[in-house]
Structure formats: C-alpha cells, structure tokens
Simulated assay, not measured.
Amino acid sequence: MQFSAGLVDWLNQQTPLTVKVAKIGDRLEKGIVLVAGTNDHLSLRSDFTLHYTKEPIDYPYRPSVNVFFKSLAQYWNHKETAVLLTGMGQDGAEGMSLLRSRGWHTIAQDEKSSVVYGMPKAAVQLNAAVEVLPPEAIADRLVQRVLFK
C-alpha cells in the first residue's frame, strides 16, 4: 500500500485527472484513474464494481494486470483502450490479447522508451498490441480516442 500511495501522490501531480487508490466497491468512472492498492489482484465484477481477490494464489505477479484485463474482457461490454507500460515479466500480455480479440484498441510501450521491456515485449510477441508507441505518443493517442470517439 505504501508504494501505491506514493505513486498516487506522484501521478496526481503529473496529470489533471484525479488519481486514487482503488477501494472495494469502487466503480470505473471517466476521468478517474484507479491504482491497485494491495498485493491482491484488482478485478471487475459482474455488477461493475471493483474488488480484490487472492485468486489465482500461485500467480507470480501481484497484483496482476492479466487478472484485471481478463475481468474487463469478461464484464465490460464497451470497446475501450488498454495500455501496457514498461515492466518485468509477461504480466498483461495474455489479458491484452483477450481484450484485442474483443475489439479493444491495445497499445504497448515501445522498447526504446521502456526501462524494462518485458511486459510490453510479451504483448508485442503475442500480437496483442494494435500499436507500439513511446509514452508521449500513447498520451496523444488516448486523448485522440477520447475526443473523437
């Protein structure tokens, strides 16, 4: 939780969007950025509320982007944009691939700008990313997709 709180504080200084630690029962809202706040996996439920789950218990990445992306693919019927940024391992690639197969626009961070090109690389190798971009271009693309949706 200490890392999440610090990240939320820093992000709130970097963006005009509101950034908060996700709490059980929160709902996804436009203009609100939610950050997982525990080592349990953040997941969307069928009633569109967020909760934390220990399952899968043996998954090496905690909290897991794959778990979150898969819950979005299962319950969120809107075609949105998913982004996978720099990180170690392969977490997020499988979930992003599932979102892409459901019609989502998917973006992975490019190798040159990544501190660790593990997670985005895995997504690219899985053909899960529609686009591979540096952070500045990801931000521009997100703004374009919001304004011209």
Rank of each mutant, 00 (worst) to 15 (best):
N12W: 10
E80M: 02
K112A: 15
V19W: 12
K20T: 11
V35C: 02
S114W: 11
V132H: 02
Q90L: 03
L126K: 14
N39I: 02
T15R: 11
H78W: 00
R45H: 07
R62C: 07
N127M: 11
T106A: 10
Y52A: 12
L142V: 13
W76N: 03
E131P: 04
A108F: 05
K20F: 00
A73L: 02
G103D: 13
D40L: 15
L44V: 07
L142Q: 11
S101Q: 15
H41S: 11
L42A: 07
H51I: 00
K54A: 14
N77L: 12
G118S: 12
Q74A: 15
K112W: 07
N77E: 14
V21W: 00
G89D: 04
S113Q: 11
D110Y: 12
S71G: 03
A22G: 06
S113V: 09
V21C: 11
S97W: 11
G87I: 02
A22Y: 03
H105S: 07
D91Y: 06
T86M: 04
D47C: 02
G89H: 03
P120T: 08
A137H: 14
H78Q: 13
A128P: 08
Q109A: 10
W76K: 06
G92F: 06
R45G: 13
T15H: 10
W10L: 14
G89T: 03
A93H: 06
A129E: 06
R141Y: 02
R27Y: 00
L50M: 01
S114L: 13
A82V: 01
V35R: 06
V132F: 03
H51A: 13
V35N: 05
R100G: 10
T49I: 00
T106W: 07
T81G: 01
L44K: 08
K20Y: 00
T106Q: 08
T106N: 08
I32C: 02
S46I: 06
T53D: 10
M119T: 07
E111Q: 15
S46H: 12
G89P: 07
Y117T: 09
F68K: 03
L42C: 05
V83F: 00
A22C: 07
G95F: 08
G37L: 10
V116M: 10
V65C: 05
H105G: 02
I24K: 14
A139V: 15
A73K: 04
V130K: 12
I24P: 07
V33W: 04
V65M: 01
T18A: 14
D26E: 02
V130S: 15
S46C: 03
T53A: 11
G95H: 08
